[in-house]
Design a protein around this nucleic acid. Structure first.
Lengths: 340, 340
DNA sequence: TTTGCTTTTGAAAACGATTGCATTTAGATA
DNA sequence: TATCTAAATGCAATCGTTTTCAAAAGCAAA
């Protein structure tokens, strides 16, 4: 019953002036006489006036809100990205509307569709593992609604993309293992179809080749979830083969920790018998024993850069050229690969 | 330039009918002639029409959006809560607007103020560690804007609250240590002022008393962050005192793991020499060695219950009585306390 | 006073939808 | 053909703002 907001009209009636004058007074428009302005501003404060966001959005045809489409929130990487996004968005007076697809393609498509209803000024998106078709993003492109992809990005779409250099990171991780004296290095990764995963694998293979080591398909295993339990399983498979690796590059930290756990259970020493490096730099890797060497995925920076790009696009009055920004990663060495 | 959304008016002009007819046709109003309706719906689809969210919100005076005010996203507990919230909200056609305060009271107050501008239909809030004054929530109460607090809730506000039974949980955790044969039990916790922390401590003390064990103030230490490093430090302080504990109840999992790490470094065995139990049931606790016994904080349920309550309030046409719901926790036993 | 200028104010349209009410149209009946 | 009724459509107000344009008010100069 009392839910009604105080409006500009209430103030106008109270003071016996017109709506326009109140509007002007509140925006400090010099057209209105100082005394009037002060009286209006005083009353507005007293009445607890808050300008109605929806009316403003409709009138100005912008919502000061950016959409964020991600597979999941319960994920250290995305949490970092969100923090980066919010830090930038916030400073520029933007809010963030998060839409989670729960790794479901259908939900992603529905969410993307729904966000086209004018409630956001632009969209930041990271596609799910299973996303193949990108029809649901085409209208953003054709209508020129600002759209920036980050991390997991579709190949064939004319849109800004911010990604980390997964191939380079894969190369660095593998090179690091080689330099630590590993000669039989295995790769355990996520879904084969995932482009970030492919890139990491490519970097892995390139490094082996660059250092004259053989690329053995039996030493390359793919999972689906990238989780701890999967790391355990893949590692078990790996260490029951005919060639026992002395180095493992895991495409996620949780896979890496699962691998270490299995190695320890198999009675082998990490890093002496087997060195393991992960990917992402999750907090757990620093605490686990031994500490997990890893690649820092720079989620926070990724979020910041993507948001800046999106806001540039939103604020630009002409159509900006489409760019792809590749961010370099850094390697973090911990106990799990320190053999020298 | 092409950013314009297709509006109902565009369709009306194209088909030479009135705006009202289009509106009715799109909402399947039986007043409009079947052929007209079909023609309109067909064209709407062809033209990629999406009803403008902002206009709809203004007209209907509701936004189908709920606000979420939390200290941080990068936190497994909040991530769980968010998932619970989204699952419920989503099913009922609501979106979630997340506002992060970064544990800053000022930012929390500003965010709360800002969300009063009519862009949300109701607010879910968890206050920060440092929040003392709750003025910024008073207007929600006086204007009867639906508001539900969860987890960290202010004492003196007439509003729904969903909390876990921290005292009971503290009691259970401590009782568990006692039943595992611990006789000198320490408590390491978060900020003294935090009500959840106080409750856990109270449960701790009650359990000691209930089992005839002395409450020694020297065995009760408070930190500020609840993080791993702090767990290490507090534990060091604890184990350099004159009485060495043989059980530790840590008010967060990260404190617990820090404590275990220190105990191990001190050359003691977990759980034989010292049993440790944490709080929250973070993923890391299941993976760490030894596995960390803990209290499951049920973030997902908390999120679901809070959202259901908020939506009830939003949908109710009369003012519902204010309630406080207390959720019981469950104890998860792992290696760190298994001494029998 | 009248004129002309500046300062200040107000009326009304617009943003994109919904909806109560009035009007038109079509078909049926007299 | 005229009248009545029901079906279909359109007009206009509304939601809360901003902003253009017109009008009023105040004041100085003629």
């Amino acid at each position: 019953m009392k839910r009604e907001q105080v409006t500009i009209k209430d103030i106008a009636i109270e003071l016996g002036v017109s709506i326009s004058t109140v509007s002007r007074a509140l925006s400090n428009n010099p057209l209105v006489k100082p005394e009037t302005r002060e009286a209006i501003q005083k009353l507005a404060k007293e009445m607890n006036y808050h300008p109605n966001f929806t009316a403003l959005s409709l009138r100005q045809r912008k919502t000061r809100t950016i959409g964020l489409l991600i597979p999941q929130v319960v994920h250290e990487f995305f949490a970092q990205v969100i923090r980066g996004i919010e830090d930038v968005a916030y400073k520029q007076g933007y809010n963030v509307l998060i839409s989670t697809s729960n790794e479901s393609y259908d939900r992603e498509a529905r969410n993307a569709e729904e966000l086209l209803n004018g409630r956001i000024d632009g969209l930041l998106a990271c596609i799910t593992k299973e996303t193949s078709s990108i029809d649901h993003f085409e209208e953003y492109v054709s209508r020129e609604v600002p759209l920036v992809f980050f991390d997991c990005v579709p190949d064939d779409i004319l849109s800004d993309k911010i990604v980390i250099d997964d191939m380079d990171a894969g190369f660095k991780a593998t090179e690091h293992l080689i330099k630590q004296g590993c000669t039989r290095i295995a790769f355990i990764g996520g879904p084969k179809a995932l482009n970030t995963n492919q890139e990491r694998l490519l970097g892995f293979e390139n490094a082996l080749k660059a250092y004259g080591l053989p690329v053995d398909k039996k030493m390359i295993l793919h999972g689906t979830s990238g989780k701890y339990e999967e790391g355990l399983e893949l590692s078990r498979a790996l260490f029951s083969g005919d060639i026992i690796p002395n180095g493992v590059f895991a495409a996620t930290d949780m896979l890496g920790i699962g691998a270490i756990k299995n190695v320890k259970e198999a009675g082998l020493q990490v890093p002496t018998d087997v060195a393991v490096i992960g990917f992402s730099n999750w907090e757990i890797g620093a605490i686990y024993e031994p500490g997990l060497s890893t690649i820092d995925q720079r989620g926070y920076e990724l979020g910041k850069i993507a948001t800046n790009r999106l806001l540039d696009r939103i604020h630009s009055d002409h159509q900006l050229p489409v760019t792809t920004k590749v961010i370099k990663t850094t390697l973090i060495q911990r106990g799990s690969t320190s053999r020298l």
